[in-house]
């Protein structure tokens, strides 16, 4: 791949890759590191990819693997029994206009990692369930299950954030009022 092609690839993919990394990693700096590391790997190994149309999924898959690898070094990866997670019906619907991007990223980060990766790939880059299954090397049924239940969990988290924000507004306003009068 020429320098120009590489730059075009970076221009197209660095922002979505960073956003994917941001939902996985602990901080913005970690997400930037993951993005950078992914492109380093592309620079070293990308030429081995025969099909250029697979470059995008290669980058996302590589970033996810780098994240897992990094995390394994930090702490032993806890096994998450997703089947034991609560499977509440979706009865809540947050007012999305009242939530900003930060709140959505925070809510995604609060989800168990397996939900997080599937949901972010689905939302961020509009990957199909088949593509996600291929990228994360999990069965299609598992992807559907994680999407279904992950969305329910995400809604709950967003509702909680919304309610929390609303409480903050109620409690702060009188204080402000009092301060003004004092």
């Amino acid at each position: 791949m020429s320098a120009i092609d590489f730059q075009q690839l970076v221009d197209r993919q660095y922002a979505p890759l960073f956003r994917f990394g941001l939902t996985l990693a602990k901080s913005e700096a970690d997400a930037a590191d993951l993005t950078q590391q992914t492109f380093f790997l592309w620079a070293a190994k990308g030429h081995q990819l025969r099909d250029d149309s697979k470059a995008k999924s290669w980058l996302f898959t590589t970033l996810y693997r780098e994240f897992l690898s990094k995390r394994r070094h930090e702490v032993r990866f806890p096994h998450v029994e997703l089947d034991d997670a609560s499977d509440d019906d979706v009865a809540v619907s947050p007012n999305m206009n009242a939530l900003d991007s930060t709140a959505v990223v925070e809510a995604l980060r609060e989800l168990e990692e397996p939900f997080r990766a599937v949901l972010t790939l689905f939302y961020l880059e509009q990957f199909s369930y088949q593509e996600i299954a291929e990228m994360l090397e999990i069965p299609i049924g598992t992807v559907m299950s994680r999407l279904s239940r992950g969305k329910a969990h995400l809604r709950q988290r967003l509702m909680t954030k919304q309610e929390s924000d609303a409480r903050k507004i109620v409690s702060i306003s009188p204080e402000k009022g009092r301060q003004t009068h004092e």
């Binding site: 956003r19 999305m96 939530l99 959505v104 995604l108 509009q126």
Partner: peptide, 12 residues
């Protein structure tokens, strides 16, 4: 809405 919010996240 989630897609829009995520895609609006600013990159450093």
């Amino acid at each position: 809405a989630v897609t829009e919010k995520l895609c609006a996240v600013e990159v450093p």
